[in-house]
């Protein structure tokens, strides 16, 4: 099963052969959890939202179009889930996210300097708008191709390049302002 493509496993699921979905869970649960974690900086919420993605994957699998790419599809779902939650809870959202706890977890470095740098990076990330943050999370932290990000955001590849560039520029300023 390891060598089968995401798209093949999903096509099987369309025919009600669900064994491949367990494999897709293994392939994506860590990345999706970290996607939510970097967006929300909330451990429990990220758990709930990740669970929600796989719940929808199972219940709404028939909405997957045979032959289309799986990764952008599931990230689009994840992104919708996050925005739904964000809209509902926007008034409750803490303006100043506490990143120190997560930065600890993100940095298992012995090297104190690097640890501090990662801490500062997370702080700078948390100051970016969600739109800028999600572009960087997908393209930089999760190593997605620009074509894939473009599909998730439903825009052109060159638009993604511009978004990444702008987000990086702002992040750089925020980061080095702290140093």
């Amino acid at each position: 099963m390891n060598s089968l493509s995401d798209e093949f496993l999903m096509a099987e699921a369309l025919d009600d052969k669900l064994d491949g979905l367990g494999e897709l869970f293994e392939r994506y649960n860590v990345n999706l959890f970290n996607f939510f974690l970097r967006l929300s900086h909330d451990h429990d919420l990220s758990h709930d939202l990740t669970q929600n993605v796989f719940f929808r994957l199972l219940k709404y699998r028939k909405s997957y179009k045979r032959g289309s790419r799986f990764k952008p599809w599931i990230y689009q779902m994840a992104r919708n889930i996050y925005y739904d939650h964000y809209r509902k809870h926007v008034e409750k959202r803490d303006e100043f996210v506490n990143v120190s706890g997560l930065a600890e977890a993100w940095s298992d470095e012995e090297d104190l300097l690097k640890r501090e740098q990662i801490h500062l990076l997370e702080k700078a990330m948390s100051l970016l708008s969600i739109e800028k943050r999600e572009v960087l999370i997908m393209s930089r932290y999760q190593g997605m191709k620009y074509e894939e990000v473009a599909e998730v955001l439903d825009c052109t590849v060159s638009a993604v390049k511009v978004k990444v560039h702008r987000a990086m520029k702002e992040l750089k300023e925020l980061y080095f302002k702290q140093v």
Partner: peptide, 9 residues
């Protein structure tokens, strides 16, 4: 950014 470790759920 590339070296930041992933957290396991």
């Amino acid at each position: 950014m590339g070296s930041a470790p992933k957290i396991l759920p």
